[in-house]
Each structure stands twice: as structure tokens, then as C-alpha cells.
């Protein structure tokens, strides 16, 4: 990110605004900037999404592969996160420059998705102890304008929502070997249940309060930020008839991490986590609505992806 020079008066202006829950761009402390989301942008992937949040641009592709489950978890599938910081974002990422940031993001995502209440790995099981699906979630950071964790988690959830997994037509057992026959029809597939997949919310501490989705100016006023992973609500991701059969789940915190050089008082941390839960609730609901609307448009209007041409 470009270095920003702010005078102390400008910083005081920002800090005072945050104390009064009215930030310099008119948002409250738990409001996000407008974002653009599109799914199904990469046709080589089973599911994909592109998210643009202010200057941050993230592209996520989900690829599926057949794998054998771990011996200690025979009934569960596998999920793997890989983050690539493209040099398009900044020349510092050239070669292996972005690896550290990439690893910290992929570790955070892996931790957030580990719990069975966050993402049910049982739905990836094909044949217990023998075969399961492995999801490769590849995240490409094309432009980095801050707030990467939030953008990545949103794009991943959208890409998973968009992922189609082909049905298994027949299984041939030959001794210990399993031979699967997959359906060739691209429409003969199932969608994943991703309603409770977690979103990561970054809370930036400015003064005594925390804000979500900080702008570059606000980030330069802060020394520490807390990242919380909050599970979603399945109800926001169901449409029509299904909605009554699904019971509303309570939001839970699936991971907590901290970034930056400063330190936090326990009370501040607690209030930050509570604030993150509230922000996650509205964000998750909005994402669910947007995804359902897009899925409907794809079916009715046979919409073509704009991708980067818009």
C-alpha cells in the first residue's frame, strides 16, 4: 500500500470522528464500503467469484479433486486454501515477495473453516474411508487496497456457494480399488451447503474504539487490529420453500487473530469481538441476499459473466 502522510491534526480529526461513531466518509463504525461481487467468472473452475471492495480486488476459484480421506477422519472430506499475491497488486509481491502475507491469510482461513459448525466436511464424503472430495480454494489477490481478510473471506464464501459438485453415477468395487463414474452432464450436480461458512471481520482499533473496513487514512491512525471469524446463518442462504425447514443458528466465533505492533486491553478486545459479531450479521445477510439474487438471475435471464470487461 502506498505510504500516506497525515498531519497530527488530520489524525485527531479521524480519531474524534470514530469516538462519535461518525467517520470522515459518513459511515458508522460497523459499516462497510460498497462492494461489487460477481460469481461464475472462471469457466475452468467448479466455482468462482470476484469481489471488489474499494481498491481491493480478489478472485477466487474452487477446484474439486477426488482424494482418499484421512484414516482418522474417514467420513470427512478435505479443504485446502492457497493464496497467491499477484505482482499486479504491487511490485513488492514479485517473485516470492508476497509469500508471507499469503501464508498468513491462508492459515487464518484454514483455521476459520476447521470447525464442523463453520463448514460441514461430511458433505464432501463420497464413500466412507475410501473416497472423498478435496476442495482446492485458490485465492488470487489482484489489487490490494487494504482490508484483505474481509474481502478474501467474502469472496471465498461466494465461490463456495457457486461451486457445483458432480453426482456420482456408479461405483465399481474391485477388491480394494474403487472406481467412480461421475455424471457428465454439467447440470446434474449438487450445490454445497455453505450457509454457516465463516466471514472474517477485521476490527481496527482507533483511539478507544474499533472500526470495520478501515480506509487507508484510518489505517494509518491505528497500530493494532483484531481479526474475528464469525460463522454464518444458513437461513440467509435459503430461498423459497426451504427457508421454513431450516432453523436459525446462533452466530459463533470460529477464530480470533491479531495483527499489528500495538496491544489491547481485555475489555477492548471483548467489545471488539462483540462489535465484529454485529457487523458480521448484517454482512452475512447482505451476502446471502446478493448471492440468491444472482443465482436466480443466472437461471431466468441466462446472464453472461461481465468479468473484467465492465
Amino acid at each position: 500500500m502506498a505510504d500516506l502522510l497525515l498531519s497530527s491534526t488530520e489524525k485527531i480529526f479521524i480519531v474524534h470522528g470514530v469516538q462519535d461513531d461518525y467517520r470522515s466518509d459518513g459511515r458508522s463504525n460497523i459499516d462497510y464500503r460498497p462492494m461489487e461481487l460477481e460469481t461464475e467468472v472462471v469457466s475452468h473452475a467448479s466455482g468462482s467469484a470476484r469481489l471488489r471492495l474499494a481498491n481491493t480486488d480478489v478472485l477466487v476459484g474452487v477446484k474439486t479433486e477426488i482424494d482418499t480421506p484421512k484414516p482418522d477422519q474417514p467420513g470427512l472430506g478435505k479443504i485446502e486454501f492457497f493464496v497467491d499475491c499477484s505482482a499486479n497488486a504491487t511490485p513488492e509481491f514479485e517473485g516470492r515477495g508476497g509469500e508471507q502475507l499469503a501464508n498468513s491469510i491462508s492459515n487464518m482461513m484454514q483455521r476459520a473453516y476447521q470447525s464442523s459448525q463453520a463448514f460441514e466436511l461430511k458433505q464432501l464424503c463420497i464413500l466412507e474411508g475410501k473416497q472423498c472430495w478435496k476442495l482446492y480454494i485458490d485465492i488470487l489477490i489482484l489489487e490490494s487496497g487494504g482490508n484483505l481478510y474481509d474481502a478474501v473471506s467474502l469472496a471465498v464464501k461466494a465461490a463456495l456457494f457457486n461451486t457445483r459438485i458432480p453426482f456420482v453415477k456408479a461405483v465399481l468395487m474391485d477388491g480394494g480399488n474403487v472406481d467412480l463414474q461421475l455424471s457428465d452432464d454439467p447440470y446434474d450436480c449438487k450445490h454445497l451447503d455453505v450457509g454457516c461458512a465463516p466471514l472474517l471481520i477485521t476490527l481496527c482499533k482507533i483511539g478507544d474504539k474499533c472500526v470495520v473496513d478501515p480506509s487507508a487514512e484510518e489505517e494509518s491512525c491505528s497500530v493494532i487490529s483484531v481479526v474475528v471469524g464469525v460463522t454464518g446463518n444458513t437461513k440467509s442462504y435459503c430461498s423459497g420453500k426451504e427457508i421454513d425447514s431450516v432453523k436459525s443458528l446462533e452466530r459463533k466465533c470460529s477464530t480470533i487473530g491479531m495483527n499489528g505492533s500495538g496491544s489491547l486491553a481485555p475489555q477492548t478486545l471483548q467489545s471488539a469481538i462483540m462489535q465484529g459479531m454485529v457487523a458480521a450479521e448484517s454482512l452475512d445477510e447482505a451476502l446471502g441476499q446478493a448471492l440468491l439474487r444472482e443465482r436466480q438471475e443466472n437461471v431466468i435471464l441466462k446472464k453472461h459473466a461481465y468479468g473484467f470487461l465492465k
Partner: peptide
């Protein structure tokens, strides 16, 4: 002129392990 060519891991039919290098 300094160039870097890199392929997204999901760009090909089979998944690539490394985007560049």
C-alpha cells in the same frame, strides 16, 4: 524491461501447484 509471467492455479483444466517459478 522486467517481466513476470504467472498463471493462476485454477487457470488450467488440471490444477497447477505453483503459479510461477
Amino acid at each position: 524491461v522486467n517481466c513476470q509471467y504467472s498463471m493462476a492455479t485454477f487457470s488450467t483444466g488440471e490444477r497447477k501447484n505453483r503459479p510461477r517459478g
